[in-house]
């Protein structure tokens, strides 16, 4: 086969593999349901401005507690803001934080995990101590401490999530790096004079990243819940930005006046959590069928 034919074949193979994965996800009822939910949540967040005419922060106190109608699909809150618009725009913030924080956590976890696994023993021990120390803090306490120091903001939420997730990812990468460190292909690369950076990025990283990506996809709903929880407590996204947690809090304090605010705030959290969890579990089964057989 010519070199040109090889180059042309690679993308096609990738598309073929992605297609196979998609088909396998769709074959699993829960996987298909999860994927559908994720697609709905992502698309509704992306096209929030198209799907609703109401700005999410526009106040109209005269219209407060309006029930669901054709004009306001999910009704209005205590300040007369359109809940449908707030839920859609809140999804944008939730997903941005979830994807951003998970991405940053992944980068941090991979870098630190590789260093811990491939570095000298004393550094490994020191980093393990650090990971365990951070993990030992309850998430909410850590968040409260940080927010007290920095004030509530999107950045604070991001920092909390990254701090909480990095040690978990780093530990997994570290364990796999320790195994691969003495693998034949790594030892061969080392004996041929490959630099540490090359060994880590070319020979180890591609072999350890798969499982952690699946884990990260299953962590997205956790991050969504953390953001919503902090915003519910008034420690996350600052008003008037819409956040599912803040909507839930508005619903909680006004539940005797209108129940639909709680529904509007709670439903997207539930659906997003279910969607990413089902999708993540199906992906795990697809990529590592042994796990499914064991179950």
């Amino acid at each position: 086969m010519s070199e040109q034919a090889l180059i042309e074949r690679q993308p096609r193979e990738r598309i073929g593999k992605a297609g196979r994965v998609l088909r396998r996800i769709l074959r699993e009822p829960l996987g298909a349901f999860g994927l559908a939910l994720v697609v709905i949540v992502v698309l509704s967040a992306l096209f929030a401005d198209v799907l609703t005419n109401y700005p999410p922060t526009k106040l109209a106190p005269a219209d407060r507690f309006a029930p669901a109608s054709l004009q306001h699909l999910l009704g209005t809150d205590h300040l007369g803001r359109d809940l449908f618009s707030r839920v859609l725009h809140g999804g944008r913030i939730a997903l941005a934080i979830a994807l951003g924080a998970t991405g940053l956590s992944l980068i941090g976890g991979i870098v630190l995990g590789l260093i811990a696994g491939y570095g000298p023993r004393w550094l490994d021990n020191l980093m393990l101590l650090l990971f365990d120390a951070i993990k030992s803090f309850p998430t909410v306490m850590l968040a409260l401490t940080l927010v007290t120091l920095t004030g509530p903001s999107l950045l604070a939420v991001l920092i909390v999530v990254v701090l909480v997730n990095v040690p978990g990812y780093a530990r997994i990468i570290r364990t796999q790096t320790l195994v691969l460190k003495s693998a034949e292909h790594v030892m061969a690369a080392r004996s041929m004079g490959a630099s540490t950076a090359r060994i880590l990025t070319v020979h180890i990283l591609p072999n350890v990243i798969g499982p952690i990506l699946i884990l990260a996809s299953m962590d997205i709903p956790v991050v969504v819940a953390i953001e919503a929880g902090l915003s519910f407590l008034g420690l996350g996204v600052r008003p008037p930005l819409p956040s599912w947690g803040a909507i839930l809090n508005d619903g909680f304090v006004n539940i005797r006046d209108s129940y639909w605010i709680v529904v509007a705030g709670g439903l997207p959290i539930i659906l997003t959590t279910l969607g990413f969890t089902f999708l993540g579990e199906t992906l795990r089964d697809v990529f590592d069928p042994r796990l499914k057989r064991r179950e």
């Binding site: 922060t57 106040l59 106190p61 205590h78 300040l79 004030g151 509530p152 008034g234 420690l235 600052r238 008003p239 008037p240 508005d250 304090v253 006004n254």
Partner: peptide
């Protein structure tokens, strides 16, 4: 203070002041 009525009042103040060119960050 982190109370529902104060937060509602603050958000209207925020909207009013945004209307005259002042951005307000609410800190609960």
């Amino acid at each position: 203070l982190n109370k529902a009525e104060r937060l509602s009042a603050a958000q209207v103040v925020q909207a009013n002041l945004q209307d005259i060119g002042i951005n307000v960050e609410i800190k609960q």
